[in-house]
């Protein structure tokens, strides 16, 4: 598309700009639609576990529930607390939302469906996801209210703790794949298990990492059972307490876009991304994007089940899991994996 637009009357530079903008919209708009639908799916999963029906009134099977909620929120009045720091109060949801969208620039949807195929893709995602905490922290401080402030403190500590072990988990995948480029990481998984299964996750060396990454990504997105930042029974709604209307909706959209991103990352790093699960010729006839979405859906289903079944962690348990269990294990695993890769490449040193 970029080449086509550059060859028209727009010329190389304007054509490139228009094409890139169009591609960004092509990712962002379906993403918003996906977020609306995944909120519906989430509510249905939790309802099913609790033996309820979930949303079933608006539209067929309640499919339009999220859009009805969006419309309702859109028509509400934006209330800004009188003692809040007005500029930052309004800036915080925008930061959360923007950061959640930014990371999607490097996600490969299929072999050549990727906006920016950069060779530091994984580092870029790590950098962008480390910015996500600012939306929460700023909103908690700017609200000038006790509960949001507690929530901001918790969020800052929680997200930083889990980012450290996520970094080490990513390093062990990078050691295996030998690249930071997401597309090449996926390609390296082709027929990884006995030339049959396209997944790092089933490699006995990487399986513990896959499980730890799944748990860490729940903690990183502050999703139940790690949703201490918005623990409704202690902190009202955490950092969102003082928000209403569109600014509240932006938090929700950003949060779910982040959860989807983490699902996509799980799939890309450990379960073969857009490759079919088994390296068998007829399966490649199905477009890669469908395989990616199917796998993401499975991971999201696990997220939903975890929310519905696992009780919320206590704060000290959360910190203990991050620093005393995940961090040592992941550091040890980096050493183990790099040793394996060395032996695999160069043979025994003796």
């Amino acid at each position: 598309m970029t080449e086509y637009l550059q060859s028209t009357f727009l010329g190389p530079e304007v054509g490139w700009l228009v094409a890139t903008l169009a591609l960004i919209l092509l990712i962002a708009l379906p993403l918003m639609l996906a977020v609306a639908m995944i909120i519906y799916v989430d509510r249905k999963i939790i309802a099913a576990v609790a033996l309820r029906r979930g949303p079933n009134v608006v539209g067929p099977f309640g499919l339009l529930q999220s859009f009805a909620d969006g419309l309702k929120v859109f028509l509400q009045e934006t209330i800004i607390p009188s003692s809040a720091n007005k500029g930052l109060f309004l800036l915080a949801p925008i930061i959360t939302f923007t950061v959640a969208l930014l990371a999607w620039a490097v996600v490969p949807f299929s072999e050549d469906m990727v906006l920016a195929n950069i060779n530091i893709g994984l580092l870029y995602i790590l950098a962008i996801s480390s910015l996500g905490v600012y939306g929460v922290v700023i909103s908690g401080w700017a609200s000038n209210s006790k509960y949001p402030f507690f929530s901001a403190m918790r969020a800052a500590a929680q997200m930083i703790s889990y980012e450290v072990s996520i970094g080490f988990i990513l390093i062990s995948v990078v050691l295996f794949a030998g690249t930071f480029n997401l597309n090449e990481i996926i390609r390296a998984q082709e027929g990884h298990i006995f030339g049959v299964v396209n997944a790092y996750g089933l490699n006995p060396l990487l399986f513990p990492m896959a499980v730890m990454f799944l748990i860490s990504s729940m903690a990183e997105t502050a999703r139940a059972p790690f949703d201490l930042t918005e623990a409704e029974s202690e902190l009202v709604a955490g950092y969102q307490t003082e928000y209403s209307s569109m600014s509240f909706a932006l938090f929700w959209l950003g949060e779910y876009a982040n959860i989807l991103l983490m699902c996509a990352l799980n799939v890309i790093l450990f379960w073969g991304g857009w490759l079919p699960p088994i390296d068998w010729e007829p399966l490649y006839a199905v477009p890669g994007i469908i395989w990616l979405f199917l796998k993401m859906f499975v991971i999201f289903f696990i997220f939903g089940l975890a929310w519905a079944t696992v009780p919320r962690y206590r704060y000290d348990q959360l910190m203990r899991l991050g620093w005393k269990i995940f961090l040592p294990i992941s550091i040890f695993w980096v050493v183990l994996v790099s040793g394996y890769v060395m032996v695999d490449k160069f043979g025994w040193p003796l």
Binding site: Y124, L126, S130, L131, A156, I160, E163
Partner: peptide, 16 residues
């Protein structure tokens, strides 16, 4: 990338 990960993502958060 390191500048963003280390300074913006970790040091500045603790500072804040």
């Amino acid at each position: 990338a390191l500048l963003v990960i280390v300074y913006v993502g970790a040091v500045a958060v603790l500072f804040l």
